[in-house]
């Protein structure tokens, strides 16, 4: 049963219009929720790009998050650089770091890659907490970020959320997307038909690092305070993993649905942080053992429709 695309297109336009005009009609609370949603969506899309489309289960997104957060913090607080410039530099720092670590990390496969990326982030966490320049474990208060208004932050977040989704959508329509999925499904076969495995994985990794770094810059400008063990903590990747798994790994809509569920759970359990994490772990286990394709993947299988197609089969 193939559903007509038209209602979805209209719905999408209405939603985008509502989101773009939100500062005019919505309360601070809803704007904050929408901002958080967009930032997590962007991070989740990038983890999904790696895990769902490139077959690289990274447990080290927090490397890019920490670097993307620390760069604008250091540049704006110590050197007085404009905040948005700092955020851009954060993305570039994450990109450079990805470039440097890609060669050793890509030699690892599967679970070695997963733990290797995680280990890299742990090294950064320990290194930053021993580094006097970034004030050890005490962290940095990004005082210049106080001057940012919520509306500015909101639009920046919105651009990241929509931009990252559009980016993944576009990548999957290029040769890069096709080669990435080929590598994910069978690396040896892809290599045999002439795919440059290393290069396509590298591009995927670099894109994910850059966008994750940019998004993290916004997150920390919003939070105003950055600390090594939080910024480089595995909790980041755990949340992204939850969002993508629940929604549906290897689908573009999956992270959107997952991020909505994450935000709702976060609000419901906001007073019991431990319980919310506990619940996330339990739900991730349940989804993986019962319906490993997640909500969107299972729905697609059942009804055979796709809103933003080019999914993983």
């Amino acid at each position: 049963m193939r559903l007509s695309r038209q209602p979805f297109t209209i719905g999408l336009i209405v939603l985008l219009g509502a989101a773009a005009t939100m500062p005019l009609w919505a309360s601070r609370y809803w704007m904050l929720l929408c901002l958080t949603f967009c930032l997590y969506l962007s991070l989740a899309q990038m983890w999904n790009l790696l895990a769902g489309y490139c077959g690289m289960i990274s447990l080290g997104q927090q490397s890019f998050i920490g670097l993307g957060g620390y760069t604008p913090a250091v540049l704006s607080v110590y050197y007085g650089l404009p905040l948005w410039m700092g955020v851009l530099c954060g993305g570039v720092t994450a990109l450079v770091f990805a470039l440097l670590t890609a060669v050793p990390l890509f030699r690892m496969r599967g679970v070695y890659f997963a733990v290797g990326t995680w280990l890299t982030a742990e090294v950064l966490a320990v290194a930053f907490s021993n580094w006097s320049f970034v004030r050890y474990g005490m962290g940095i208060v990004i005082t210049p970020a106080y001057q940012l208004s919520l509306t500015e932050m909101y639009y920046a977040g919105l651009v990241m959320g929509i931009g990252s989704t559009a980016l993944v959508f576009l990548i999957l329509r290029t040769d890069l997307g096709l080669t990435l999925m080929a590598v994910r499904d069978d690396e040896a076969a892809a290599q045999t038909v002439g795919v440059d495995v290393f290069r396509s994985k590298l591009y995927g990794f670099l894109i994910a690092a850059f966008v994750t770094g940019l998004t993290a810059g916004l997150i920390y400008l919003h939070q105003v305070f950055i600390q090594p063990y939080k910024a480089f903590g595995i909790d980041w990747t755990v949340r992204l993993l939850f969002i993508v798994i629940i929604g549906g790994i290897g689908t573009i809509e999956g992270p959107i649905v997952g991020a909505v569920i994450y935000i709702v759970l976060r609000q419901v359990f906001s007073e019991y942080l431990d319980v919310s994490l506990l619940l996330m772990g339990a739900v991730a286990i349940a989804v993986m053992t019962v319906a490993p394709k997640g909500i969107v993947g299972s729905l697609q299988e059942r009804f055979g429709f796709e809103i933003l197609s080019s999914r993983r089969t």
């Binding site: 447990l59 431990d274 994490l277 506990l278 772990g281 286990i285 993986m288 053992t289 490993p292």
Partner: peptide
């Protein structure tokens, strides 16, 4: 398949920790 167990094990880890 190969990916679900990684994620499930991570889920168990989070549940135990919390």
């Amino acid at each position: 398949g190969p990916e679900p167990p990684i994620i499930v094990a991570l889920g168990i880890s989070i549940v135990l920790q919390n």
